[in-house]
Design a protein around this nucleic acid. Sequence first.
DNA 1: CGCGGGTTTGATGATGCTCAAGCCCGGTGG
DNA 2: CCACCGGGCTTGAGCATCATCAAACCCGCG
Lengths: 193, 193
Amino acid sequence: MFEVIISNIKKKVAINDEEAELLKTFFTPKKLRKKQYLLQEGDVSHYTAFVEKGVLRSFTIDEKGNEHIMQFATEDWWISDLYSFLTEEPSDYAIEALEETELLLINKDDYENMMLAVPKMERYFRILTQNSLISMQRRISGKMTLTAEQNYKKLMEQRPALLQRVPQHMIASFLGIAPETLSRIRKQMASSK
Amino acid sequence: MFEVIISNIKKKVAINDEEAELLKTFFTPKKLRKKQYLLQEGDVSHYTAFVEKGVLRSFTIDEKGNEHIMQFATEDWWISDLYSFLTEEPSDYAIEALEETELLLINKDDYENMMLAVPKMERYFRILTQNSLISMQRRISGKMTLTAEQNYKKLMEQRPALLQRVPQHMIASFLGIAPETLSRIRKQMASSK
DNA sequence: CGCGGGTTTGATGATGCTCAAGCCCGGTGG
DNA sequence: CCACCGGGCTTGAGCATCATCAAACCCGCG
């Protein structure tokens, strides 16, 4: 059950078996079927979730009714609306399973308590958050400097497996372009290659 | 000299006077005049900098020669190219002072040593990074869901002082729009109000 | 007083969006 | 087993937003 997360943590900080056992006590397993929600827009994001198996997306809906995907989380990733989780304000985002998914949940109190119990986890989450921040910066950079086609190609390189698992219109939504545009880009790429 | 940074740290984690004194030893003060660079594109970002006074920007230049601003840092903020700082790979970014600026620098070894010496700093940087991550997510969200004008208005609300301190074409660059577009947005806003 | 960076204005064009229709394919029920 | 349904993808035409290029303007500074 906990092998994935423990091995993920061990990749970033050195913990012994005793600490590993202790960490396990803070998490609650949860399964979601395809299309089930971990978080509804407007609710507080009470949990941060580690993905053991499956895929989820976090997304927001604008006033025109269009969905915009902020994040895809696959195995070995974390997902939540960090803002809502930390402030306990209602979230603008929803989080939905795109496949049958197995999660480990932790709520805010346990998140804090876990770091008190095992201070190395401060370091773990710092490193994790730094890496997320770097990838967000690159995403903004890409949005500002590259064309839609270049951003799509970059995603193909960085997360090829993802493209096999999620529908194309969601990839478009993640890239911030219309589904028709992505369709045309792919057509264009297929012909010119 | 160190009042600003120590008070910033104390806002996030509880440290005593002894720890505060210890922390001070890790930083090197540095002054930059207007237009001086802390980091040149292509160099490794050896330092993370805390801004005691002044303003800086980090930006990248695309193949067409256009600048794109990733971050403005004013008093009480940190700035670096986190990716380059952590990996010691050459940076795609440059960091430039926009005014006479006073910084406190820390290099990567001291950054790590400081956290060993004062473990609470893990927590400090975790919280800091989480907040940056949240603001990055909001920036992406804005880029995806809002018009140029709405993003400009949001920036006016969030960082009004900044608009008084940096040239308009840099605001445009930060927003990811052409300077002419920002000029027209402002004209439009002035007339319709 | 003139230079130069920054901003404005205008004309034109590219990129990607919107709306609408058709197509493809897999799943479901008769 | 096949017809039908529906979601997702594609295609087309027209359009909106913003970029580009060029020129004029403004104003602070030497």
